[in-house]
């Protein structure tokens, strides 16, 4: 069933953006616009792949352990990047946009370096690429199954959705979520209310970066299943940032949004299958559709202008308590 195949593919692909945007939403709710997401996703993917590679080379480890260590390594790589970003923007109060862009440039460079060293053939043994592919088999444990069915999706698809749902619940239903949103809306108010603004900003940014990094691992190891995929990770990162706007800073809308983005992005490759011929230029143009719909969402929300649909009020603004 061709159309079902398309839908499942769109759904699975969208999970990349879902990780990225969930992470970015958590960060932005703390008032920090982290434009380092593409770099963070790349570094996370690289760290995860490196860990998987090493685990597989180590020999007889149980597959579930390999998967967990891979996930943890990706998360840790992203979290470290998040820590660096937090230190620069929260503690040193550097400009968030500039810092974020620098993180992306640095992160993408680091990603390329890491993958290059990963793929390099060591002098004494077979190529690491073999481990890499073996890791892929383990990695999709335990759900990976038949193509053209939902079961085809690996565990990370469901993990991504679970994280988005949990993030949504935490943001809207818990004290921690209330405090986090307060920090992003008005850090001065949160501070006066006795909330540790710095801690919330650090924790949200670090956890958010870790979650986004999982998206990088998912994209490279699971969706694409090829080490060459790191070359296109930056585009996935920017789309994740766009998805934050598209989903109006709500993780649960992000689940739907990620599917829309996934569908629009792969539409070009499915059009010939559906019997519509497109050339290279047109197909690239079609890939911009996620950005186009994001702009449409921006236009619509600007016209409707509800306070609830706007970004956190203090997004991008550094907070300094004794500033008069």
């Amino acid at each position: 069933m061709l159309f079902l195949d398309f839908l499942i593919n769109a759904f699975a692909f969208g999970i990349t953006f879902l990780y990225g945007s969930t992470g970015e939403i958590i960060t932005e709710k703390a008032g920090h616009l982290n434009l380092g997401i593409p770099g963070i996703m790349g570094v996370g993917g690289a760290c995860g792949c490196a860990a998987l590679n090493i685990m597989c080379a180590a020999g007889n480890l149980p597959p579930w352990l390999i998967v967990i260590i891979g996930l943890l390594a990706a998360f840790a790589g992203g979290a470290l990047m998040g820590l660096l970003y937090s230190f620069l923007t929260v503690t040193l109060r550097s400009n968030q946009n500039v810092t974020g862009l620098a993180m992306t440039i640095f992160g993408i460079g680091l990603t390329k370096y890491l993958f290059y060293t990963l793929a390099k053939k060591p002098a004494n043994s077979e190529t690491p690429v073999i481990h890499y592919l073996k890791a892929l088999d383990y990695y999709r444990f335990p759900f990976a199954g038949q193509k053209s069915s939902l079961v085809y999706c690996g565990i990370m698809v469901f993990l991504g959705i679970a994280i988005a749902i949990v993030a949504s619940i935490i943001l809207t239903r818990t004290r921690v979520g209330l405090h986090l949103r307060a920090v992003g809306e008005s850090p001065a108010t949160a501070d006066a209310a006795g909330i540790n603004v710095t801690r919330y900003k650090y924790v949200a940014t670090i956890i958010g970066s870790g979650i986004a990094a999982l998206g990088g691992l998912f994209y490279i190891m699971d969706y694409q299943g090829s080490q060459e995929a790191y070359l296109s990770i930056e585009a996935m990162g920017w789309l994740s940032v766009a998805l934050v706007i598209f989903s109006l800073w709500r993780p649960y809308l992000s689940i739907i949004g990620s599917f829309v983005f996934g569908a629009l992005f792969i539409l070009a490759s499915y059009l010939p299958v559906f019997g519509v011929s497109v050339n290279m230029a047109t197909s690239n143009l079609i890939k911009t559709l996620p950005y186009v719909v994001t702009i449409l969402v921006l236009i619509v929300t600007s016209i409707i202008n509800r306070r609830e649909n706007q970004p956190p009020a203090s997004l991008g603004v550094s907070y300094f308590r004794e500033d008069r």
Binding site: R173, R175, L178, A182, E185, S186, A188, T189, A190, A193
Partner: peptide
């Protein structure tokens, strides 16, 4: 304070409970 330290987007009660850690479930 003279300039209110309130969060526009929150309800009155959400603003009031902001920062209160009394050990009870939210």
């Amino acid at each position: 304070h003279q300039h209110f330290k309130l969060i526009d987007l929150f309800s009155a009660a959400e603003n009031i409970v902001l920062g209160v850690k009394d050990g009870t479930r939210y």
